[in-house]
Design a protein around this nucleic acid. Structure first.
Lengths: 264, 264
DNA sequence: TCAAAAGTGTTGAAATTACACCCATGT
DNA sequence: ACATGGGTGTAATTTCAACACTTTTGA
């Protein structure tokens, strides 16, 4: 009988098998037009920045940006800070993904990682501190990453793909204003399939929340597109004082990740 | 630049402001027919077991069962263990809920709690070690709990209620076999509204997975109900090697908990 | 034979999908 | 003028919700 808060837990003082360390990492997504220096008019796809490890374990491998949790900062705060320190990026969207704590996920020591996922817009993505130890990768076609980070990215991608269908997160990958076809292109990049422009338009403004700026944007040899923004969200009077987020509608994807099922 | 795994993190050795401790707690749900000793035929509702704290902070208040994470056990393992030690219960379903880490959630020290939620069936619930320091409470009408545990329970309830609509977790609150009206009663208790028996039947067996045992159960002055069980799940060939779970369909509830929104 | 829940059938509304068609612009 | 994407209309399909109706039991 030992309610939480009592626990002296994971600082090694009373656990003979060694301490448990706590880290916070983040999976960052942005849309990029496939790196093409010359050919700019590619269909954009999902990319993410990784950092190169410079010590064991997994020295030299690419990994998610992250770091330790300082005792004066909240979890999301720590995610945003470490993300800013390593990549220079400031996310427009940040949400907790999952806590990963398999015993053997880090060779030698025991690390529990609380992982966040983040979205940045195109302009912000260009501002990233790319260099010797930070580089962008297409979200599919990743190399073998350090630790269990490949699985973590897969899970974050699954969350992104399911959540884009019932929420308005896609806007975090764009600027403040956007055309409907830009927004649709984001959805198409995330879902990896074409969407009917007519039906897409109806869906998004059926949800309300979308308002025309009055301006329009001209881009090619065709009619200019109206610009929209999202209206300030009134409906956030949530009964939940905490910050987490979760479920809702109906993805067209295959299987969700498996829950634990029976007792361990 | 400091990829995770490097971090010496939260064991106080290098953080002047003191250590961060890591705890694992669980919100356990079961269905009970409103404690009525005499009147057995109540509509069942959701209940959960809490443990009484026997030291500061929050001495005397009720709290979620939980405890420290031993370095040799996984997170879900720790949840199941501490849950068994404090309440004697073994869950039929166990899933990670969220990691709570607000700086001020525990007076005096810094505690990050990785919280799981669990479902137990009626028979198991009766087996719980109720006593001076363990007691069942109806999920609505909770007293003021220790720490931020009221908010945590609210969030767990929200997850239960949204998830019951698109998954088959409801079965974890029943035994191996059940009638369709028993299953419907579980849904009704969770969602707190009546469901059309005809449409409910179609919905659940549209999802497949349900098979008649051949037997039936007679309960009152009416036609006996066929017994069903869930077929072994083939479709668990998830692309995700990790264990987490998440989103899908369309709850009839109000607002989901708020995500972080903008950068901290 | 009557009440009550099990189980089946039917119908109208609502949401989803596919696709035809006009509009406004640059070349 | 014409090719191209922006934007609107509409009909077929599917899903969903409500409810009438038949079946089988215990009392």
């Amino acid at each position: 009988m030992r309610p939480e808060g009592d626990t002296v837990a994971a600082n090694g003082e009373q656990d003979p098998a060694g301490p448990v360390t706590l880290a916070v990492s983040t999976v960052i997504f942005a849309l990029r037009s496939d790196d093409g220096v010359g050919s700019d008019s590619e269909d954009p796809t999902i990319w993410l920045p990784l950092v190169r490890r410079i010590r064991e374990p997994h020295d030299g491998r690419w990994a998610l940006p992250g770091g330790p949790l300082a005792s004066h900062e909240g979890l999301a705060e720590a995610a945003a800070r470490s993300l800013s320190e390593t990549t220079g990026l400031t996310p427009r969207y940040l949400e907790q993904l999952y806590a990963f704590g398999d015993v053997d996920r880090s060779p030698g020591d025991r690390v529990v990682s609380i992982v966040y996922w983040a979205l940045v817009d195109g302009a912000e993505a260009k501002r990233a501190h790319v260099g010797q130890n930070v580089r962008w990768f297409p979200a599919d076609r990743l190399p073998r990453l350090a630790f269990d980070h490949n699985a973590i990215v897969d899970y974050a991608l699954w969350r992104l793909r399911t959540k884009v269908e019932y929420s308005d997160i896609a806007r975090a990958l764009l600027g403040e204003t956007f055309t409907l076809s830009e927004l649709r292109t984001v959805h198409e990049a995330v879902l990896q399939r074409r969407l009917d422009p007519a039906n897409f338009r109806r869906q998004v403004d059926a949800h309300g929340r979308l308002e025309a700026t009055g301006d329009s944007r001209r881009s090619g040899a065709h009619r200019p597109a109206r610009l929209y923004r999202y209206a300030a969200d009134e409906s956030r009077a949530s009964p939940y004082p905490v910050t987490p987020d979760s479920p809702r509608p109906t993805p067209r994807l295959s299987t969700p990740p498996i829950p634990i099922g029976e007792q361990p």
